[in-house]
């Protein structure tokens, strides 16, 4: 809890929102400029090191943003220690699993294996 307390959580929430906004604008522009034709081109596009890094950062920002947001909702609406701890643990587990899935997919892309 202390890791993302007060100011730090507030800053992470806003910085991640700005990054996601910029990333999505870039992604939309890139897709409009050169729409990928088929799966192979999609893979090639994401596999470029700069794009992979941008995607990885996007999902990191998304997960951090979601965690701060979900935790805020839980702190506001869910009362009672046991219930609150359960809901927070489930949310953290779901976000970590989503993060692991993204990491595996990106790793598979670079190792040449099938993407998840």
């Amino acid at each position: 809890m202390r890791l993302l307390s007060g100011l730090r959580a507030w800053t992470v929430q806003r910085a991640s929102a700005l990054y996601m906004l910029g990333f999505l604008a870039w992604l939309a522009a890139a897709l409009l400029a050169a729409p990928p034709e088929g799966y192979a081109q999609w893979r090639a596009m994401v596999a470029r090191p700069a794009a992979s890094a941008a995607f990885a950062l996007f999902f990191a920002a998304l997960l951090a943003h979601a965690w701060v947001g979900v935790r805020d909702v839980v702190l506001d609406y869910v009362h009672g220690t046991v219930l609150r701890a359960t809901v927070l643990a489930l949310a953290a587990g779901a976000l970590l699993a989503a993060g692991a899935w993204v990491a595996l997919a990106l790793a598979a892309l670079h190792s040449g294996g099938a993407a998840a």
Binding site: M1, S5, G6, L7, A9, W10, D72, L75, D76
Partner: peptide, 12 residues
């Protein structure tokens, strides 16, 4: 004192 998830940052 105010840099706390509850004291200040509950403000929505």
């Amino acid at each position: 004192f105010l840099d706390d998830v509850y004291r200040l940052y509950r403000c929505r």
